[in-house]
Simulated scan of single mutants.
Amino acid sequence: MTATKTAEARAAVLPQIADPSKIAPKDAREMTRLFFDQLSVLEEGTREYQYVRDTLIEMNVTLVQYAAWRFRSRGTGEMDDIVQVGIIGLIKAIDRFELTREVEFTSFAVPYIVGEIKRFFRDTTWAVHVPRRLQEARVELAKATEQLRSRLGRMPTTLELSELMSLPERDVIEARKASNGYTSASLDAAITSSEDGEAALADFIGVDDVALELVEDFHALAPLIAQLDERERRIIHMRFVDELTQAQIGKQLGISQMHVCRLLNRVLGKLREGMLTSP
């Protein structure tokens, strides 16, 4: 008898559990050790291996529920979402646990579960608005990705994810893109540039150019200035182009500084009104 057949024969003695999630925690602890013992001798990818692994997941969902309950006061996300995220941690723990560690599986698994839930809360605030259906698909996508990655030993393709999630490929692609909305990078984040060495992200982001607003103002102001009489245009030119003082302008025009002030106020008021009423 080959090693594979021997392993399959040993797995055949395992009880067929109709609903592993209904097993009491005390019984689940004993059954978990038995199933891990069988998992260690089965060939990965076989139907028997998958049955044992799936049963281990379902038997230990109560661990996830226990860990999720501790986060009930966070006020972010539905409890079902938190449990689903915790199951990802449970799956990681099952795939990495070895009986030779001589430690209870519960002690080994809880840090994985809690770590995954904490990561969920860390990333749970969306940086941009994303439709609710895509927010929900994010958790399912993460779970499906981890399951297939553990089973296949590589990152799954879009087609493989769509088959497992029972979603069209376009929805899987959309969910992946939407996941990017969870986080945003700091403008102070350092990035590497081959030419200039290290630089901040903000160095590559454009800013509003105040001078562009002046261009628009000049275009709107030009026809209004053209409507002024010659002396008004001359006063505007001397004050704002030649930058002369009111006293200097008065000396050139042969009028008092007070008269220049009144003329400037009248001209500026006329231009201001024209700017506010122009389309």
Rank of each mutant, 00 (worst) to 15 (best):
E232D: 15
A202G: 01
L148P: 01
I88V: 15
I117A: 01
L148S: 01
L214G: 13
L39I: 05
D171L: 00
Q50K: 13
A7P: 00
V13E: 13
A211S: 11
R149L: 03
Y112A: 06
T2Y: 02
K5P: 06
R151E: 15
L253D: 03
A220T: 12
E213D: 12
V103C: 11
L214C: 06
T124G: 05
E163G: 02
R74T: 11
L161F: 00
G75S: 05
G197N: 05
V172S: 03
R29H: 04
A11C: 15
I249D: 06
G181E: 06
V64R: 04
L134V: 01
V110D: 03
S73I: 05
D81W: 02
V128M: 02
D196K: 13
A28K: 10
V210Q: 06
D27W: 08
D19H: 11
E116G: 02
E104K: 10
A178S: 03
S107W: 00
E98Q: 14
R119G: 15
V210L: 05
H129D: 14
C261S: 14
V85M: 12
S186E: 10
V41R: 13
G250I: 04
S193T: 14
L264A: 07
F71N: 09
V64A: 06
A144V: 04
T46C: 10
R96S: 13
V85W: 02
S166V: 07
I57G: 00
I113E: 07
A185I: 12
A211C: 00
R149P: 02
V210Y: 03
M258G: 15
E146G: 01
R96M: 10
E8T: 09
L253F: 09
P168Y: 04
A28H: 06
H129R: 13
P15A: 14
D196Q: 12
F108W: 14
T100P: 00
A175W: 03
E98I: 01
V260S: 04
H237I: 11
D217N: 10
A28L: 04
G45F: 04
